[in-house]
Amino acid sequence: MAFVRFLLLLLPLIELATLILLGQRVGVAWTLLWVLASGLLGVLIIQRQGWSMLQQVQQRMAQERSPFGILQAGLWGVLAGLLLLFPGLITDALALPCLLLAWRNRNRPGPGEPGGPQVWQRGEHTIIEGEWRSAEPRDSSGPRIDRD
Rank of each mutant, 00 (worst) to 15 (best):
11 L>D: 03
12 P>W: 14
12 P>E: 14
12 P>V: 11
13 L>G: 10
13 L>C: 09
15 E>I: 05
15 E>F: 10
16 L>V: 10
17 A>V: 11
18 T>D: 02
21 L>C: 07
22 L>Q: 11
22 L>P: 01
24 Q>R: 11
25 R>S: 14
25 R>P: 00
25 R>V: 09
26 V>K: 07
26 V>S: 04
26 V>M: 09
27 G>E: 11
27 G>K: 05
28 V>R: 13
29 A>T: 05
30 W>D: 12
31 T>I: 09
31 T>F: 07
31 T>N: 05
33 L>N: 00
34 W>D: 09
36 L>W: 11
37 A>L: 07
38 S>K: 14
39 G>E: 01
40 L>Y: 03
41 L>G: 10
42 G>W: 09
42 G>P: 09
42 G>V: 04
43 V>M: 12
43 V>T: 13
47 Q>L: 15
48 R>Q: 12
48 R>E: 12
50 G>K: 00
52 S>I: 05
53 M>I: 04
53 M>Q: 08
54 L>Q: 08
56 Q>M: 07
57 V>P: 03
57 V>N: 03
60 R>Q: 14
60 R>C: 04
61 M>Q: 10
62 A>P: 01
62 A>K: 15
62 A>N: 08
63 Q>P: 04
63 Q>N: 08
64 E>A: 15
65 R>Y: 00
65 R>I: 01
66 S>Y: 01
68 F>W: 01
68 F>M: 02
68 F>G: 00
70 I>A: 02
77 G>T: 11
77 G>V: 10
77 G>H: 09
77 G>R: 08
77 G>W: 06
78 V>W: 06
80 A>T: 05
81 G>H: 05
82 L>A: 14
84 L>F: 10
85 L>R: 05
87 P>D: 14
87 P>C: 07
88 G>N: 07
88 G>Q: 06
89 L>I: 15
89 L>K: 10
90 I>C: 11
90 I>Q: 13
92 D>P: 00
92 D>C: 05
96 L>K: 11
97 P>T: 13
97 P>D: 12
98 C>D: 08
100 L>E: 08
101 L>V: 15
101 L>S: 14
101 L>C: 07
101 L>M: 15
102 A>F: 06
102 A>M: 11
103 W>I: 04
106 R>A: 11
106 R>L: 10
107 N>I: 12
107 N>M: 09
108 R>I: 11
111 P>A: 08
114 P>D: 15
114 P>Y: 09
116 G>F: 08
116 G>D: 09
116 G>W: 04
117 P>T: 04
119 V>K: 02
119 V>M: 02
120 W>C: 01
120 W>F: 13
121 Q>M: 13
121 Q>T: 12
123 G>K: 05
124 E>M: 05
125 H>S: 09
127 I>A: 07
128 I>T: 07
129 E>T: 02
129 E>I: 01
130 G>S: 01
130 G>A: 04
133 R>A: 07
134 S>D: 01
134 S>R: 13
135 A>N: 03
135 A>G: 11
135 A>R: 10
136 E>I: 01
137 P>Q: 11
138 R>E: 12
139 D>A: 04
139 D>V: 10
140 S>W: 14
141 S>Y: 06
